[in-house]
Design a binder for these strands. Structure first.
Length: 550
RNA sequence: GGCUCAUUGGUCAAGUGGUUAAGACGUCGCCCUCUCACGGCGAAGACAGGAGUUCGACUCUCCUAUGAGCUACCA
């Protein structure tokens, strides 16, 4: 067989050689430690937590030592394509403070486009050049098998209990003559381009994974498809060419790719490429309600783990980043607690420290982190964050909550414990915060929340007395002393300890008095300092709310 | 079925032959306290199972179990 002739028959329009591209995309001039990573999503128009999780890993690895983090769009599968997906990806990641250094999304003539195009469908010329070269070397051939024939083959192999797939003696079209190929082509028969695998059955390769260490895998023997019948490359072929030509140094990808590593190993070898480092990551998992087991996040089954969900509820992107980092690198949390003031990007992120097994997304933990981190912000920062969130996610509330900036800031100071010895940690996410402080912005107390513990008559008696004695000018201690007086006057103990020592001597304690007032004013049994609440709300509002209970 | 990876408390996890098996979240108790939140102190709670190797195994080997992934002209 004259492979040269076959190559020209198959790719008459390809006039370039691999050397051309090798020269066009030279090795990057970066320091030794610098790594080049990429995020390579399909443009499905959907990003979820798992995507963010691995994008963050990529980004940290690249930016740890001034490397490059770029965006490549893997649109080789027609069915998955969605318009505007690239924009969505860039915007979403930007929301979480992750920026690309180059790749899709940058203008064509931009400096950040030097290794482009970064969209695979715009790279077919490149793939075909390498494909032609492979054909020339007798390492690839056209395969005219139909789906039915392949299906037939699979059945036959299953019956024989043989390994399924197109390989070795089963790869009939390996031996097609030039004339046969020419004839098929002339008849317009569709074909795919297959790799002529050089692997031997039973042989093993030792594959080094940056996270898992050395893994023994069987050598690839399959004549895998390089170019689909429409001339578009499969993931495997595109991966080899793109990551080589874009000079990727570390490929971070999901663990489901580990099994196909032998294919990539062979491909890189036959193409004469130096292999990048690989890091196969564990997926974020969740508990499956039906089976009770762990399983990987699925975009179809787990809409609540879409990034939109977290944006809509108003989780602070910084908190999300912190949480994901604690999952990604187990020593991050310790580092962050040790140096709370250091920018988190200074954390020495390491590939080796990444998890081997999939972690469950722990909402409690995330909540805890959110509360902790928000408590470190200033009231102005929280104000701005809430304002921005409300603009898009709660426009109806925006006008109400932000009508009076000073009032809002006072409320935030109250809830954050600004000025106290220690900050409070009540605030977790925007939606929850709006709910938490809602009673400040309604006509009356939140009647749906908590009920009074004392009976109607007693309640009215106490609240009446409270209104009579109340003085707006009284400071916090004077005001509380007044509550104690009420307690004493009605058979409650003004001294909590005395009450606890002999509860049978009293109807209750001053805390019951405070609670009655608290519920009357706010509708809730639990709030921060009541005196401050009253003074933010104003005397009239307070009196009105209490009168409603009489 | 074949191949691969994983398995330390409810969750996330330190740990690489000798430890009282860290720490964080959660849970519970106590203290502080007008409630809540914060903070402090404390408690319960784990090496999937079985064989080896070894003076000694969470750590090494093998087997079993369980879970996950791959086995496409999808990525």
């Amino acid at each position: 067989m004259d492979y040269e002739k076959l190559a020209n028959l198959l790719f008459p329009d390809v006039d370039k050689t691999p050397d051309y591209y090798e020269e066009k995309y030279p090795y990057r001039k970066l320091s030794k430690k610098a790594e080049v990573t990429r995020m390579a999503p399909s443009p499905t128009g959907f990003i979820h937590l798992g995507n963010l999780y691995s994008a963050l890993a990529d980004e940290r690895i690249a930016h740890r030592h001034d490397g490059v983090f770029y965006l490549r769009i893997e649109d080789t599968d027609e069915k998955r394509k969605v318009e505007g997906a690239v924009d969505l990806i860039i915007k979403t990641l930007r929301y979480f403070d992750i920026e690309f250094d180059e790749g899709a999304g940058f203008p064509e003539d931009a400096e950040q486009n030097q290794y482009g195009p970064y969209v695979q469908r715009q790279r077919v010329e490149i793939y075909h050049t390498y494909a032609k070269d492979l054909v020339k070397k007798g390492l690839a051939y056209p395969c005219f098998q139909t789906e039915e024939e392949l299906e037939e083959l699979r059945k036959q192999q299953e019956e024989e209990k043989a390994l399924t797939g197109y390989y070795g003696k089963y790869a009939k079209d390996r031996d097609l003559t030039y004339e046969e190929i020419e004839k098929n082509l002339a008849e317009g028969k569709p074909y795919v381009l297959r790799l002529h695998s050089q692997g031997t059955e039973g042989k093993e390769i030792v594959f080094k994974d940056e996270i898992k260490g050395e893994v023994k895998l069987p050598e690839n023997i399959h004549d895998i498809v390089l170019l689909k019948k429409d001339g578009i490359p499969t993931y495997h072929f595109a991966h080899a060419i793109d990551d080589h030509l874009m000079r990727t140094t570390v490929v971070v990808r999901g663990g489901e790719w580990l099994a196909s590593a032998p294919i990539h190993y062979e491909l890189f070898n036959l193409l004469g490429f130096k292999m990048p480092k690989y890091a196969h990551t564990a997926h974020l998992m969740k508990i499956d309600e039906e089976t009770g087991g762990k399983r990987k996040l699925s975009k179809r089954k787990d809409p609540e783990l879409s990034l939109n969900y977290y944006m809509e509820d108003g989780y602070h992107p910084y908190c999300m980043k912190i949480y994901l980092l604690t999952l990604l690198n187990s020593n991050f949390e310790e580092w962050h607690n040790q140096f709370p003031d250091k920018p988190i990007n200074e954390f020495p992120f390491s590939v080796e420290k990444m998890n081997q097994s999939g972690a469950l997304f722990d909402k409690d933990k995330f909540m805890n982190i959110s509360k902790n981190e928000l408590s470190k912000l200033s009231e102005d920062e929280i104000y701005d964050f809430l304002y921005t969130w409300a603009e898009t996610y709660a426009p109806d509330k925006k006008d109400i909550y932000f009508a009076d900036k000073e009032k809002m800031l006072s409320i935030l100071r109250l809830y954050m414990g600004v000025g106290m010895k220690r900050r409070r940690k009540d605030l977790a996410y925007a939606k929850q915060i709006f709910e938490l402080i809602s009673y400040f912005f309604t006509e009356e107390a939140d009647s749906s929340a908590d009920d009074f513990k004392m009976d109607e008559a007693e309640k009215k008696l106490i609240l009446n007395d409270y209104l009579e004695r109340f003085s707006y000018e009284a400071d916090n201690t004077a005001w509380f002393d007044m509550l104690k007086e009420i307690a004493d006057a009605h058979g409650y103990s003004s001294d909590i300890k005395a009450y606890k020592a002999n509860p049978e001597n009293f109807k209750g304690s001053v805390s019951d008095i405070a609670e009655a007032v608290r519920i009357a004013v706010t509708g809730r049994a639990n709030t921060p300092d009541l005196w401050t609440i009253i003074h933010i709300m104003g005397e009239d509002a307070m009196r009105e709310r209490i009168k409603k209970q009489l």
